[in-house]
């Protein structure tokens, strides 16, 4: 069993970190994982993306054209990658920045205003953590408590911003359960 998740957005949205935290939690859970960033030449304001592979066996090809799920943090990312997602997967849409949904009918769409939730929690900079926890709660790929611990560990050197990120995490989980 192998699951691939593409995280996409623009530079500065914390895409690489969200993806890394998911991979880290899955690794702690005993899975084989790989985190593959795109490092091609990109324009400022263009799409930045990153793929996480979680598997119960040694990971073969780390090059994924058709991921199981997509977490889209801005509109160009949704438009660029929505058709690559495998049928039955989740398309996560940051509705704070994406005023549309996907035309796909063979996937589950999870629509969450992550920027608004993050602002309410204290700072828009925690939007990636809202997206991560909401997606994790919906996809059930990793244990939520473990993931939360991983977030805490990531910010261990900056204890001041831990409460903000914990709040963002909890709000993300909450909205995924009602969405």
């Amino acid at each position: 069993m192998q699951t691939e998740i593409k995280f996409a957005g623009f530079g500065g949205q914390g895409i690489l970190l969200s993806a890394k935290l998911l991979a880290y939690a899955a690794m702690k859970q005993g899975s084989f994982v790989a985190w593959i960033p795109s490092y091609g030449p990109e324009m400022r304001g263009g799409t930045a993306y990153c793929t996480v592979v979680i598997s119960d066996r040694l990971i073969g090809s780390p090059i994924i054209k058709n991921p199981t799920h997509l977490v889209a943090m801005n509109r160009p990312s949704l438009e660029k990658f929505e058709n690559d997602v495998k049928p039955g997967g989740i398309i996560f849409i940051n509705s704070s920045l994406i005023p549309v949904t996907s035309q796909r009918t063979d996937v589950t769409q999870l629509v969450v205003p992550v920027n608004d939730i993050a602002i309410k929690a204290g700072s828009v900079r925690a939007a990636n953590i809202v997206a991560l926890s909401a997606f994790a709660a919906k996809s059930k790929l990793v244990d939520l408590e473990l993931l939360k611990e991983c977030v805490k560990e990531e910010f261990a050197a900056k204890p001041k911003i831990i409460p903000l990120n914990m709040e963002a995490f909890d709000q993300g989980v909450k909205i995924a359960q009602t969405a």
């Binding site: 890394k20 991979a23 690794m27 084989f32 790989a34 985190w35 593959i36 960033p37 490092y39 990971i59």
Partner: peptide, 10 residues
Amino acid sequence: DGLIGQMMEP
């Protein structure tokens, strides 16, 4: 190669 350099794995 560049992929091995850029990729994260356990």
